[in-house]
Write a protein that binds this DNA or RNA. Structure first.
Lengths: 148, 148
DNA sequence: TTCATATATTCACAATTGTGCATACAATAT
DNA sequence: ATATTGTATGCACAATTGTGAATATATGAA
């Protein structure tokens, strides 16, 4: 009972719904920095929201060296299955820009593994190229770190 | 997009999830005082939660004289349908006591219409009878009104 | 080993939002 | 009029959110 409430509460947030949507839109898993760049939030916020989603048993994590990959958790009962189906039914155009950014971000992978940190030079290069063409708003998310 | 967030947020609350569950568990509609007595909250809180649920387009209301009846709103898209299916799949024993109280409350109806206000004498009588038998916790919800 | 660097998490703070309670208010029926 | 059903508002308090700094953990180089 409390779990259902926790799950609905977890999904009732813009950032967290976006995270779930991203994880739902790709077959494999995503690391924190990829999610961060795709969404355009500060990575400490993304980290905290991921923790909330993990507490609600909606995602599971897997650590590989410095990188932490997240994926959707397998639904534990019928209720959660329907919730996931509901999420999968949300029209894609609601997250269009974010999905585009994720595709660009994943193109930076090497051997299906993330090799670029948050806001890496490679990422900046790719984003700038698109900005010149399409005049997309530039990234204004905070750095969440004093250096650099 | 914002609607989905609003809906999930609306469902991420104990009282509101209970309200939706009640509406889902009976074929017809329920008036505010019936919901209030079944849940055991103050009726002004129930009223406000109902307003939130109405804002999220999860319930619809129908006024009949002094009484206001609420019912589940017809799902507007596939996403909402799956959400309702998820809610309908929540095991009943999670709300057992509340469902029992609702059945007792509905037994006070006359001609399928509510004729007893919040915490009426009839309701008190029925509850007391059960309390003597099963030693259920007595109702401790606030009155939400200075008179009476 | 030791140090620097990189990924990710956690902590502290302020701003915002949500909640329950009490009260006042509006609408309706008798 | 007067009682009753339900709503709206103000208040105090708790919960949530985003941000920056600090910390933890892992990698690699000197």
């Amino acid at each position: 009972m409390e779990l259902y409430i926790e799950q609905f509460k977890a999904l009732g947030d813009k950032t967290r719904l976006a995270i779930i949507w991203l994880l739902n839109s790709v077959p494999g898993n995503l690391c924190v920095c990829e999610i961060t760049d795709a969404i355009g939030e500060s990575h400490c916020n993304v980290s905290r929201h991921l923790k909330i989603l993990k507490g609600a048993k909606l995602v599971k994590e897997k650590k590989e060296g410095r990188w932490v990959y997240f994926d959707l958790a397998k639904p534990q009962d019928q209720v959660q299955s329907y919730i996931l189906q509901a999420l999968a039914t949300i029209p894609a155009d609601a997250f269009l820009e974010m999905t585009t950014r994720l595709k660009m971000r994943l193109s930076l992978r090497d051997g299906n593994r993330c090799v670029d940190g948050v806001k890496s030079d490679n990422w900046r290069r790719v984003v700038n190229k698109i900005n010149d063409k399409n005049d997309i708003n530039e990234d204004t998310s905070s750095e969440c770190r004093k250096d650099k």
